[in-house]
Design a protein around this nucleic acid. Structure first.
Length: 478
DNA sequence: TTGGGG
């Protein structure tokens, strides 16, 4: 048991540099436990109490084992710290937790009545006197609204750009180990990331096809728990982070990811949690969280809510076609037979409850296989169209086939190769008149097009596993 | 010892 005296308030502790103190605070943020540059693991907790709410007060916690560091569950949880040393760095007072002489305990916050910690370091022992402090701090925090605050670094998913560091206020949908020792967060804020240019060569699709997602695919039952509108950003964690899944145990937690960065990988956005990133847990009542949710509810309550945000609600910058309601939406290069069917997202399609179904989506064609128009039809037999398109919207990517009579409709018969090539180029957002090999390899920016997609299966005994998608009822008119 | 936001 640690006996450095009674619990004291942060305001009083700040005057006790180079003394050991006992503290109790509300956790408002933390750095995700990771390997330190020394021999231990480290996590920095940011805490506040009645006497000191701003700026955050830091507690540096070191431990030999990752599991021995605090794993904060929710916004507003309480931490009790015994025998931590008060120090100062660059004029800022902070506390250091010594793995041999200090101890900590984490308690649920706010409305919880339980006085048992959900995690405690070895050597921790609660005293009757401390219980009163815990009850008092919970009561105070009930009526205290701490906001994530704003800053120039704060972006939403629709604003992110590659490179540079920024903060993101988002909901953590899932944390999982996507491959051995590689952890990934799946986060969402209700907006769509911007469509990207594609640098890769068309012919690469044969040997090195564009991936459909960054991770190897998730089981359909997990995918089905995700929102169908708005981009789900994959955030890969630096290798310094081990067992990231110990955190964010309650999925659906809103957080502010501080100082993260972003890369583009195979034409997909990918966030990166770097060693200097921080997590700030937010309550659902946080101002910006509420604003994100309001914006999202406003979006999905409109007829265009499931159309990519970049096309909403104004004329699309890419197609240049103006529209106000879904029935009037027309995309420059395609027409469908199902004018009054509402648009859905590719996530709607992926997570739909039936194997066979029909959908209408607004997508970009980001790759085609085979890539040469002269190979769009089978060389033998009936010489039918058989093409695999890679389609994407802000929510997902899929392969969709253009087959036989659907191909005849799509390409309006069997046009000459040069016309077919021109149609392909337009669909893929390539330079209009290709004069050289360089033009063919120039970055392409596919336009948004509308298309009807049906899902079907190849094998009756494994319908879901053999589910495929096909374009139908769609004409390429450009 | 290690961290310490930009």
């Amino acid at each position: 048991m640690n006996t450095c005296g009674n619990l004291i308030q942060l305001r009083d502790a700040i005057d006790l540099q180079n003394h050991k103190v006992n503290l109790l605070g509300v956790v408002v943020g933390f750095s995700v436990p990771r390997k330190s540059k020394g021999t231990d693991y480290v996590s920095v907790l940011k805490i506040i109490d009645e006497s000191h709410q701003s700026p955050d007060f830091s507690v540096n916690i070191f431990a030999e084992n990752l599991d021995d560091l605090p794993h904060v569950k929710s916004a507003g949880d309480l931490v009790q710290l015994s025998c931590v040393m008060m120090k100062v760095h660059n004029g800022e007072v902070y506390a250091v937790f010594n793995k041999f002489s200090s101890s900590f305990a984490l308690f649920e916050g706010k409305s919880c009545k339980d006085l048992c910690p959900y995690q405690a370091s070895s050597g921790y022992c609660i005293r009757g006197l401390d219980e009163g402090f815990i009850i008092r701090l919970r009561t105070w925090h009930l009526n205290f609204q701490l906001d994530a605050g704003t800053s120039a670094y704060l972006l939403s998913l629709k604003e992110i750009k590659a490179g540079g560091y920024f903060d993101l206020i988002c909901k953590v949908l899932l944390v999982c180990e996507v491959s051995k020792d590689v952890w990934m967060l799946f986060v969402w804020d209700g907006t769509d990331t911007q469509p990207l240019d594609f640098q890769m060569k068309l012919e690469d699709e044969a040997h090195n096809p564009l991936p459909l997602q960054i991770e190897s695919s998730l089981p359909r039952d997990i995918l089905g728990t995700f929102p169908c509108v708005g981009t789900i950003l994959r955030v890969i964690a630096d290798q310094a982070y081990e067992k990231l899944g110990l955190h964010f145990q309650g999925s659906g937690q809103w957080v502010r990811l501080r100082n993260i960065t972003c890369q583009v990988c195979s034409g997909l956005w990918r966030g990166v949690l770097v060693p200097s990133s921080k997590i700030q847990l937010l309550s659902n009542e946080d101002n910006i969280v509420a604003e994100r949710q309001r914006e999202f509810n406003k979006r999905i309550s409109t007829k265009c809510g499931r159309v990519p945000l970049v096309n909403f609600p104004c004329p699309s910058p890419i197609t240049g076609i103006s529209f106000s309601v879904v029935s009037e939406i027309a995309f420059q290069s395609t027409l469908t037979d199902y004018e009054h069917v509402p648009f859905v997202t590719l996530m709607d399609l992926l997570t739909y409850s039936e194997v066979t179904a029909k959908f209408k989506c607004v997508v970009r064609v980001v790759a085609v296989y085979p890539w040469r128009a002269e190979d769009f039809r089978s060389p033998i037999g009936l010489r039918e169209y058989r093409i695999r398109l890679t389609l994407e919207d802000p929510t997902a990517r899929i392969h969709a086939f253009v087959y036989a009579e659907d191909g005849v409709k799509f390409f309006e018969g069997y046009p000459p190769i040069d016309v077919l090539t021109s149609k392909r180029n337009k669909l893929l957002g390539m330079t209009e008149n290709l004069n050289s090999k360089e033009d063919e390899d120039a970055p392409r920016n596919p336009p948004w097009v509308e298309c009807c997609i049906k899902s079907y299966y190849l094998d009756k005994s494994s319908r879901w596993e053999s589910r495929h998608y096909r374009i139908f009822g769609t004409r390429h008119v450009a």
